[in-house]
Design a protein around this nucleic acid. Structure first.
Lengths: 364, 364
DNA sequence: CGATCAAGGAGAAACGTATTTGCATCGAAT
DNA sequence: ATTCGATGCAAATACGTTTCTCCTTGATCG
């Protein structure tokens, strides 16, 4: 009597295991495993027979057991900074949502599933993180010496980051060239006739804010313009409007503005309306956003897209390459180009049909 | 010599396991497990000592082993219908994104992680689904006799659905009352002065479309209005504009329209512009959308929100209750109320300050 | 003084799979 | 006729936990 047959007598409950299949097919566990996974040397007859029996019994291999045995779970993590209770920052919502969407898709395409995990600041981090077996993780915008990344690295879990990881040890990373993006926008506005370009930026010290602001300052220096900018707490949903207002009420009011964050566009638009400034005639406007809301504003606003879909996809590709040990020769650092979507707000003399006529200043 | 100590001699590679901790602490494996999990009856001294040793060794329990042993993975699935390569339908993007966001958050709050999985139509479904051990799954908008749900049910995995599951066997479900929502909108438009209300609806047979359309037809019957509606393939990104155009070019042109899908708002707006119709003066407009783009259109458009955040949260709550066997007494079917966000497009005489003056019809 | 009991902890059996090793059998080659 | 390699499959082991059972040791009580 085989072990499988013996086992078969002892239990009748629960779902069918590999042992049940072996018993039912009259073969050993090994043979079942080999037949189902296409390994070993078995004649086609055996293979087919085993598969047929497995099918009939509705056998599904236990993911947990397989993971334990092979050390591979087929799961990759994605951590998104959480503020308060909600994952994803509100203001960067469309950006994160697109990344998640693209990353999920890219992972599924290669047979992996994606798990969304909380960022370092969560309370019950330890719990949830250590309760799931990950083959690798994508970390969005890791802080310098990020504890999550450090821990993962210690455990030998490959990490790919979105955003320059600094000295944090990651396998690869992907990012935009934020300096180049700012320069592109400055050039665009200049060509559209801007004389003094202002910036709406944040107070936080994350890489994106820092690099972009510095690029702006450097550009100012290079063209001999005095910097004109206002900062605000970018993660405070209400603060944007105030900053926009401050920027446009300055004595040295700019005739063009670039806003680094998503809500800046609408807030600048309504501030401009309050001060009787026509866009784009009196004020050129660009903001960084993934939202399609700016196709329908009055006027439509030129936006800079950071291409979150490509970022998500690329990060996952790099991660899975690392997991599977495929040295694809792809550079370990990939730069995703940004995309400037030019709309009416940054063109001085566009086709006028869709642009509102000048109107008297009123209370917005 | 204990088994743990014995083991300690034999292996020196890889990460620390529970055995290594036991050996280093001079206790048995059982004691380590109990100490770390707060079980068994141990004096605080032992507990502390074990924890300290575990910490020093950087011990992290293997999620796979724990899952295998306990039968619980701490993972819940979320399946989102995928079209082509991308998960989430484009037109319903904001809706799905909000559900995912809220579901993720709700899951994390209760110590679970969320895995996004492909819908039934994917090619490699079998692979990815059976490679991850799930404690339960939220299925969005399951089809009648959905194969994924059926299979999960067979495996004893609890399922909660968003949308009436019909005869598909789920543990609980959550949905909006789509009929009530349509009636609410009809009343709102009527109060705003609408005489003939039109509908922009889809050709597909999913529950949402069907229920909403039928509710509209029933309402027409009850008030004695001839139905005025156009249908289009709602998942075709470009088709909406054509349908909006058709609806407004009819001889029996409605003086108010409700659009069932997200893009309908902007498309109706530009169609109205093309035909020289002022919104809201000549045409009242409401559409179902989660996008905040409609706060910034000209004029802002009244939207119906299906409250995807509450849907996602509730679905996850119900699912985890089912997983943990907590009969909270909560009804197994929960209705999430919809929210009508009234903006200028459906108010005949609003505060006019932000509304554009009438303009001559032009080519949009 | 022997029996009872509680505290503290050790042993060992699962959980369900993948994999390594090894045992037969059989045809062909020496 | 013996050896040999190839073929088809079974047994056993390991993956790292959790948990059930049981053992030991002092202390308490009748």
């Amino acid at each position: 009597m085989t072990a499988a047959a013996n086992h078969n007598l002892t239990r009748r409950l629960g779902r069918a295991g590999i042992r049940d299949v072996a018993a039912a097919a009259g073969v050993s566990i090994t043979t079942v495993s080999d037949a189902l996974n296409g390994k070993g040397r078995l004649p086609d007859a055996t293979r087919l027979h085993v598969r047929e029996v497995a099918e009939r019994l509705g056998y599904r291999p236990s993911a947990a057991a397989r993971t334990l045995r092979t050390g591979r779970s087929g799961l990759i993590g994605l951590t998104v900074t959480t503020y308060g209770d909600e994952p994803f920052t509100f203001t960067e919502f469309a950006y994160f949502a697109e990344i998640v969407r693209a990353a999920t898709s890219a992972a599924l395409d290669r047979g992996y599933a994606l798990v969304i995990l909380p960022g370092s600041s969560q309370h019950c981090v330890q719990d949830v993180w250590s309760n799931v077996a990950l083959d690798g993780t994508v970390v969005i915008d890791p802080a310098e010496h990020d504890p999550v990344v450090t821990e993962l690295h210690r455990q030998g879990v490959p990490v790919v980051s979105d955003g320059n990881p600094g000295s944090t040890p990651v396998r690869a990373w992907v990012d935009n060239d934020h300096e180049a993006a700012v320069l592109k926008i400055m050039e665009h506005l200049t060509e559209a006739g801007a004389r003094r370009i202002g910036l709406l930026t944040g107070t936080s010290t994350d890489t994106y804010t820092r690099l972009s602001t510095n690029a702006y300052l450097a550009w100012c220096e290079s063209v001999g313009q005095d910097p004109v900018y206002e900062t605000y707490r970018a993660h405070d949903a209400c603060a944007s409007a105030g900053a926009a207002d401050r920027l446009l009420s300055r004595p040295d009011r700019p005739d063009a503005v670039y806003g680094l964050f998503d809500p800046n566009g609408t807030d600048l638009l309504s501030a401009a309306r309050r001060y009787g400034l026509r866009v784009p005639d009196d004020l050129l406007l660009v903001c960084c956003s993934e939202s399609d809301a700016y196709t329908a504003t009055d006027p439509p606003v030129t936006t800079l897209s950071l291409r979150p879909r490509q970022i998500g996809t690329t990060a996952v590709q790099l991660l899975i390459d690392a997991i599977e040990g495929e040295d694809t020769g792809a550079p370990l650092q990939q730069i995703v180009p940004t995309e400037l979507i030019v709309r009416a707000s940054s063109q001085r003399r566009p086709a006028r049909s869709t642009v509102s006529p000048p109107r008297a200043p009123g209370r917005g």
